[in-house]
Design a binder for these strands. Structure first.
Lengths: 142, 142
DNA sequence: ACATAGTGTAATAATAATTGTTACAGTTTA
DNA sequence: TAAACTGTAACAATTATTATTACACTATGT
């Protein structure tokens, strides 16, 4: 699974815990253990879809723009990773009945798989994720 | 998605259509458009689990060992790709409540996602895949 | 017996995908 | 006008995947 998906979840969870102030890509990247530019790339997608707001300049950063329960993991999956389940089949032999048709058959099956996965992911909103993170009971940020 | 999974499905479908004679890794690799050594690697896993038989030497090759409807895509997934849904999270900051706990929370969620996917994949046996391939109606192998 | 056609598998090379880094333009605040 | 940010593009480094080579081993046919 694409790690943009989990970075997006991580970032949104981070923002959810800082509802009253802007968080910087540096802060989030330190929490997530990746480069700040990657965070900005992922968050730029989330912003485009209205999940968060951003502000440039001193004191700027990112902040949640919706209720936590309005954003579920399927939404995030679709934005960051739609089609990621699809296998990248090599071009197979069109002269063979298997080679010629397998790609289409698998495409259909995996399309269904993605939809099915969607039903599961819709059960988790950022609120649920935040609750799960809190349940694990560890120390807070520096 | 891991392409070992789809190569395994491709190979088994190929074998399903050649029930009376052995197929070689060369033949399958030509149909699938990959290197024969990869086919042998993937098929060696399937053999280990009893789905197929193989025979070395002249006239040897691979052949199905079960009823087509005894092998479903979840079985194949488990053999070739178990855990593939799990994202490879970078090591995040243990001093941050999000960084410290996100990995475990995501692990749990994705474990559930894989189980859920399993329910879907169990609906497809190789028999169904063969039927779908035949429905697409293209020319046969050389 | 021995040439031929196969599997089985390890080691390595090539390629592709992902991730990190640098650079810099633009924005906001003080 | 300096400092602290976002937004992006371009490029470098790393990692993962795939192809290839090599060769031991096995069975068959002559």
């Amino acid at each position: 699974m694409n790690s943009d998906f989990t970075l997006a979840i991580h970032s949104l969870t981070y923002l959810a815990l800082q509802p009253d102030r802007m968080s910087t890509s540096d802060g989030i990247s330190e929490s997530a253990g990746v480069h700040p530019v990657r965070i900005r790339k992922v968050l730029s997608l989330l912003k485009k879809h209205g999940f968060i707001k951003s502000k440039e300049g001193t004191g700027g950063g990112f902040i949640f723009n919706l209720e936590l329960s309005e954003v579920n993991l399927w939404d995030i999956y679709m934005i960051t990773s739609e089609g990621a389940l699809q296998p990248k089949c090599p071009d197979s032999n069109e002269k063979c009945i298997v080679g010629a048709n397998m790609k289409r058959v698998l495409f259909t099956i995996f399309l269904g798989a993605e939809e099915h996965l969607g039903e599961y992911l819709k059960n988790y909103t950022i609120k649920e994720v935040v609750d799960l993170v809190n349940q694990e009971q560890n120390s807070g940020c520096d």
